[in-house]
Amino acid sequence: MKQKESVIVGISVGDLNGIGPEIIIKAYEDPRTLELHTPVIFASGKIMQFFKNHFKSKINFFNIDSPDKVVLGKVNVVNVWNEAVKIDFGKENKKIGEYSIKSLEAATKALKDGDIDVLVTAPINKHNIQSDKFNFPGHTDYLAKALEGKSLMFMVSDALRVGLLTDHVPLKDASNAITEELIKEKVATVITSLKQDFGIRKPKIAVLAINPHAGDNGVIGNEDDTILKPTLEKIKSDGSLVYGPYSADSFFGSNTYKNFDAIIASYHDQGLIPFKTIAFGQGVNYTAGLSKVRTSPDHGTAYEIAGKGIADDSSMKQAIFTAIQIFRKREEYDYYSKNPLKKASR
């Protein structure tokens, strides 16, 4: 099968007062990075020149006015705005939040239009982006609506993949949000993603319990017995390799997670605390379930170190290369889905 020569990677710049611009610049300091893909940063030539000077970078930017004018092999910058922007490193600012959204919206449009192949989003501040026009808790929910998909927050690394039944939901509301319909939807999304995005033909999945000790037969809550267990049994009856619910307290410490292709946690911290403990810096936030590929570093704006030149770009680089790898896997999956005889003859 013939693959696209150079994957075009769109990058939304994130919160300009955070570490997003720094880790983007660091990710492209080595020109060899451009051998396999072409980056397109959605910001402005002026602001990226400011960051280049501030961080004493030797990177060369190629300014364009439209994402359909990308030059392969260059670090392209789309001028989403032209006015000067005042940067105050480490400070939350409502105006800066507006520029975060301008960048994200322009990059998302380019993704939908096919001007870029994948999207990598630098960290935003979930508070300063809120407005009457933009009232999403984060990237995942916005992209699910923009791309009309059933999204799932999927944290991935070489050693571990963790999906969530509920993501940015207050803990007091999490158990009420977990329904049979939601469980089936999220499990189906994980299975599909493991097959088409990671090349795993028969994925094996573990699901973590809602309550401590999976409820201890109703002593510590009955949600696991009345909702989670019977739903998982229904899913298993279709031939899917889905197991649980497992008590979360010993699941990772005992290395049980290594027996599965993915783990689905019931709520945000149940999944992200062990993931970031095991894979921090090498992990990637991937939005599974969409028609397009989007990844992000596994950390936030890091205001406390913004502008100091000490931010680690490891997760940003990993987010870029994971997006490319998933894009290639999808190419392969789509090709062999349409040509099953060629797959059988490999």
Rank of each mutant, 00 (worst) to 15 (best):
K186P: 00
K52C: 08
A288W: 04
A107F: 02
L143M: 13
H268S: 04
D238K: 04
N222F: 07
L72A: 14
I129G: 09
A248S: 15
G300H: 05
F154D: 08
A265H: 04
I64E: 09
D225W: 00
N339Q: 10
I220Q: 03
P245G: 14
Q282K: 15
F198E: 12
K56S: 15
T33S: 12
K109D: 03
G18N: 07
G244L: 08
V120R: 07
S103W: 02
A288E: 01
T121V: 10
G221E: 03
S296F: 07
N211W: 04
V162Q: 03
G138H: 11
Y99P: 03
V77Q: 10
T192W: 05
V13P: 01
P230T: 11
L104P: 00
E35N: 14
F134S: 05
I324Y: 05
F275Q: 12
L182Y: 06
I87C: 08
N255F: 08
K95N: 10
A177F: 07
E181H: 04
S266W: 03
K329I: 06
K133E: 15
A262D: 02
G73I: 06
S193R: 06
G300R: 06
D68V: 04
K145T: 10
I200D: 02
S100Y: 01
I227Q: 13
G307M: 08
V169T: 13
F280E: 06
M316C: 14
K58I: 00
V7L: 13
Y257H: 15
A265G: 11
S345H: 10
I227N: 01
G114E: 04
H127K: 13
N217G: 07
S240I: 08
A144G: 15
D117T: 14
E223A: 12
D313L: 03
Y303V: 01
P203D: 05
K342F: 12
F198S: 11
W81Y: 15
N128S: 12
G14R: 03
K234V: 03
N135I: 00
K172L: 01
Q130F: 07
K150H: 10
T33G: 02
E83I: 00
L104T: 01
P297F: 12
K343N: 12
I183V: 15
E233V: 10
P31Y: 06
L290S: 09
N255I: 00
Y243L: 09
N82G: 14
A302G: 11
A188V: 02
I183N: 02
K91L: 11
M153T: 10
G281Y: 09
G307S: 11
L119S: 03
K95G: 01
R330D: 10
D158A: 14
F51A: 07
Y286F: 15
K342V: 12
K109Q: 13
L241V: 06
D225K: 11
F252M: 12
